[in-house]
Amino acid sequence: MTVDSDLELMLRVRSGDADSFEVLLNRYRAPLVGYFSRMVRDPALAEDLAQEVFLRVYRARDRYRPNARFTTWLYRIATNLALNAIRDRKGDGPLEVESDLDMEPAAARIPDKKPSAEQHLMDSDRERLIREAVEELPENQRAAVILHKYQEVDYRQIAKVLNVSEGAVKSLLFRAYENLRRRLEPFMKGGQL
């Protein structure tokens, strides 16, 4: 069975094939919710924003031109929405901090491992340190790191998503990782990470 490319699927969506949209939805639902969860942290808002991306893709299907990768288009819409949401929330005071109970720990998602309470706390603590370090990054650096590290988007594609040059993205990523290294190095040396 051949896997249809995003582009082929989107062209079929443009000609009115609802099933192809469903395939795209299944393919990018989890990555998009994950992207927004890291960008805005609030899980409910992350879902709303992911829904908005799919809605915009669906509404703009008639205007879709296959001159760029589908994911570039998708993440460009997503990044614009995420950055707007971050800016909107800046005026509302500090971000809502999730408690450790709200956050599903990494190990809890692996069914064959039964983490102890101590392991659970360590995982939560590790996640919190990283989350806070990434959240301290300037908006563009944060978007670049999350796209590069967690969404596995190539730096050339990130350049198209953020509408900057490839050199600018490389420099942006270097500065972002340097900021993260400076912030997290003490914890890495202390064995917490």
Binding site: R29, A30, V33, G34, S37, R38, P43, E47, A50, M103, E104, P105, A106, R109, D123, R126, E127, I130, R131, V134, K149, Y150, Y177, L180, R181, L184, M188, L193
Partner: peptide, 13 residues
């Protein structure tokens, strides 16, 4: 650093 960043997991939809 790259390895440490891997431990940040988020919930799915």
């Amino acid at each position: 650093l790259n390895h440490a960043l891997d431990s940040w997991k988020v919930s799915g939809p």
